[in-house]
Design a protein around this nucleic acid. Structure first.
Ligand SMILES: [Mn+2]
Ligand SMILES: [Mn+2]
Ligand SMILES: [Mn+2]
Ligand SMILES: [Mn+2]
Lengths: 222, 222
DNA sequence: ACTTATTTTTAGACAAATCTAAATTTAAAT
DNA sequence: ATTTAAATTTAGATTTGTCTAAAAATAAGT
């Protein structure tokens, strides 16, 4: 079965948005793909007929097994090309995404496998995101301690180091929690406190102790 | 200015067909692109507005300077990618064309330049066709003596080693001339004669003397 | 529970690239 | 110079992916 670039972009967008457990909403997809909700609905119907996803009107959408297989193949290509661009062609890691958005749609199976071989079967792309292997399997996401996160890398809190009431209290007060997206802006060597920035909030400083109890993963905006 | 994959394919097809001096006909383009003449006419109008070609109805078409620049950029990408596939990813030279047909439309300028650098600025692709440099310049086509042409390589007669009446006579009789497309099928070590095959004609044998007076170039069906 | 707001879907339109069938222009043949 | 044939262009229709505006369904607020 062959799919258009547009169809593949929809499948990949759904894949990224469905990582939580819930269904993906039409509006979220429209935002992700920079189109209008009406266009999303049309395409969802089309992709449902092609058996790539399970969709019920007004109830959101999830990928079928078929769809997830396709999504992983595209993500695999995207991240392998990013690795190639950075490690072989000496691109900066901040300039590869756009190019990979095009390269991920090249269809040759042999190309992907030979590229993977040539690169030495890398496990993570330049942004720290895992590269699916030819079977769609990938290494578990690296969880980095927030204290070790490099400056200006978008990340998302994915686990906490303790369940204590005291930790919960301070997290609530600072508006931090599982899923919070942030970047580290400064690190102070005096007391190892760090300054972090969350979207649409002023930067705040958190202590070494607090930072050490938070684990983050780099964000796969790929 | 940005162009669609389809537009680029038209430009490249016109480039390949206009290598002689005449204008390119609608029918020839339709055959080359596997579309119908009516579709060609529509697209020619569109590309004329975009100043990529000079077209007058019923009179055929040629690329403008703009169009030729674009064509050379696409051919450059196509042949660089072919070189990459064969020399870096260990493809066979017979399995790269289809893939390069897709890769030639990736738009990143930096990608092409870095790829060229990585490959060491190759001058010819795996089929012997010259690779345009970043300015669109390319090495002159290798002219191989027919006696040295390897078996089963499609080639085209591009010059003769003498202007003698005698040579002309035998060429005419064997239906050989400038532009004749052929492949060498066998080489006989006894007298160094060779058996050649021209499309839609039975194979014929020509002498060492005749073969030595013909020069061919490998055919750029890219 | 009822009203309002938000989300989602439908209906109808549009641009890109293609096709078929018919009309027009150019070329070839008598 | 007509007639015939071939090449090319036009006219009208189709498919894909998108849009706007209006209708329908769901969620939120009181
Ligand atoms: Mn990316
Ligand atoms: Mn990435
Ligand atoms: Mn080729
Ligand atoms: Mn080639």
């Amino acid at each position: 079965m062959h799919f258009t670039t547009t169809e593949e972009n929809y499948i990949k967008a759904i894949y990224h948005l469905q990582q939580g457990t819930g269904n993906v909403s039409t509006n979220d997809l429209a935002a992700e793909l920079s189109t209008k909700p009406a266009s999303i609905t049309d395409m969802l119907k089309k992709l449902t007929i092609k058996k790539l996803l399970r969709y019920e009107r007004y109830k959101g959408v999830r990928l079928s097994n078929e769809g997830e297989k396709l999504a992983l193949a595209i993500v695999r290509k995207h991240r392998l090309w990013e690795y190639f661009l950075v490690n072989t062609l000496e691109f900066g890691w901040d300039e590869v995404h756009e190019v990979a958005e095009e390269l991920e749609h090249i269809s040759s199976k042999k190309l992907v496998e030979q590229l993977d071989l040539f690169l030495g079967y890398p496990k993570f792309d330049p942004h720290g995101d895992p590269i699916p292997d030819s079977q769609g399997r990938m290494a578990v996401q690296q969880q980095i301690n927030l204290i070790d996160l490099a400056l200006d890398i978008p990340a998302e809190v994915c686990s906490v180091g303790s369940q204590s009431t005291e930790l919960l209290e301070i997290l609530k007060h600072k508006q931090l929690g599982i899923g919070t997206k942030l970047e580290v802006k400064r690190k102070f060597s005096f007391d190892h406190s760090i300054e972090i920035k969350m979207k649409s909030l002023p930067a705040i400083t958190i202590s070494q102790q607090l930072a050490q109890s938070l684990f983050v993963k780099t964000i796969s905006n790929d």
